[in-house]
Structure formats: C-alpha cells, structure tokens
C-alpha cells in the first residue's frame, strides 16, 4: 500500500474537484458544520480520539459514502470495529491520517493498494483520494470529517468490473 500526500489542487477529475469543494467550505466556515456542507451524503464523521493504530470511532456514515459501500450492509453501533474485523491491514495502514488530522493537519492523500477479491486469482490495483479535517459541531472539541472518493483511474476500473472487488479498498 502506498499513501502519498497530494495538494488538492493536483487531484484529478470530479473526485479532485469535490475534495477541493469540501475543503473550500471548511475554510470558509472555519471548520464549523453547516447544513449546506457539500458532499454531506458522501462523508464520514469520526472521533478525534485517533491513536494512529486504528481507525477512530465512527459516528455519522453518509448513505453514499465509499466506506458504506464496502461494508455491504454491515453497520451497527461500532462501525470502526466492523472495518477492523473485515480488513485489519487496511485499518492499520490508513489510521495514521486520522491521527494527523486530529492534531490539526488538513490531510489530503492519494491511497493506492492492491486487493484480492474473494475467488479472484489476481490482485486488483485500487486508488482513491481522501480528505480528513477537523469539524466543529457545537461542542468544545471537534470531530473529524473524512471524504474518500475513487480517483478517475479507479472509476474506470469500477466501470469494467462487474463485481464489488474495488470496494474492498476502503
């Protein structure tokens, strides 16, 4: 797995534009949630208590979020544990970004990895962009907002694959 920091201005395609839109909104509101927040149905809110070892506790999961797609309906009260159980390596690999965002960094990354879907003989490369930033919901301490979107290259892969192999990536 490769995780690379990317300037959002250099993120390509619609995914890049949407990450820039959300970042611009968060800058405009100084990180405060408002009902007109763009991409609300595609984001995930997590706890700011991020150790860097695991994905932090998950609160809101947008109905069109990438992470919801890959969980294939397995959502209960502890979403982060469900992800950890489904793919411990992924959990460990991506946890660092949440810890940095909790410290106040605005995290913009390209994540590239290979997955082996059930029954497949070959690995399939997947790639996506992600944003993680702090978000204030009226409480003294913030939460984290995460927007994860397939890159244009991954989207083409998505169109070619009839199964859900690519979804294992997030």
């Amino acid at each position: 797995m490769h995780i690379k920091r990317v300037d959002p201005a250099n993120m390509k395609g619609l995914a890049g534009q949407q990450i820039q839109d959300l970042d611009a909104f968060l800058r405009h509101t100084s990180g405060t949630f408002r009902p007109d927040m763009p991409l609300f149905h595609r984001v995930v809110f997590t706890s700011i208590n991020a150790s860097g070892d695991h994905i932090p506790q998950i609160g809101y999961v947008g109905k069109e979020s990438y992470i919801k797609e890959i969980m294939e309906g397995q959502f209960g009260s502890d979403f982060a544990s469900a992800i950890r159980n489904q793919d411990p390596r992924f959990d460990e690999a991506v946890a660092g970004g949440f810890a940095r965002a909790a410290q106040g960094d605005r995290v913009f990354e390209l994540v590239e990895m290979e997955v082996t879907p059930p029954g497949a003989l070959q690995n399939i490369p997947v790639s996506y962009y992600r944003l993680i930033e702090r978000l204030w919901l009226g409480t003294p301490h913030p939460v984290l907002v995460n927007l994860t979107l397939p890159t244009p290259a991954q989207f083409r892969e998505h169109l070619l694959l009839p199964d859900k192999a690519h979804l294992l990536a997030n």
């Binding site: 809110f45 706890s47 506790q57 919901l137 301490h141 939460v143």
Partner: peptide, 16 residues
C-alpha cells in the same frame, strides 16, 4: 444508527 453513533461521538466531543 447514525443518530445513535453521532450522539456517542458528541458525548466524547463534549468531554474531550
């Protein structure tokens, strides 16, 4: 479940 998980998250954000 979204409401339930969010309330848990907000309790944490309230307490720090």
């Amino acid at each position: 479940m979204n409401c339930h998980r969010m309330i848990e998250l907000l309790r944490q954000a309230e307490e720090g």
